[in-house]
Amino acid sequence: MLVSEREQLRGNIEAWVEQYGSNRSALIPVLEEVQRKYSHISEYVMQVVADILDIHPVEVSGVVSFYSFLGRKPKGRFIIRLCRTISCEMQGKDRVARQLENDLGILFGETTADGNFTLEWANCLGMCDQGPALLVNERIYTQVTPETVHDILEECRRTFGVYAPQLTEEYA
């Protein structure tokens, strides 16, 4: 990482701490911001956050590893989480899963080579009456069928390039 990037990163974290307060209860909101902007929480970030909030880096690391939506490793720009609990299972989540894997050419738990898509499982998205459900970053899609998988991925792809709105703005 460039030194200038590091400084910028530190500046961002300081701004978020300013926004959420400099005590330990600000930890999760700050980490969520980092996750949203950088799609992962590096060891460096953990140490900076710990330093500013006056807690220990290992505590931050414990929180990051506890929550599935926070991660240490960089993930794709679009994280697709497909619900694997019983209602979605009964409404055909397996076919959706296979379609996702085929379209993206990766298995669950993997990220595409271009760094755009990550496939993950989720446990109950609270859409049991409208299954199968999946989550793309922070947007929910319900009653997904193998046919609509294609549309969903296309919709994601269309948000690339110069017309792509900033992730933070779109999903804030």
Partner: peptide, 11 residues
């Protein structure tokens, strides 16, 4: 001790 070497990882 406020040193913070050890913590629980994952769930």
């Amino acid at each position: 001790q406020e040193v913070g070497v050890l913590e629980v990882d994952k769930r």
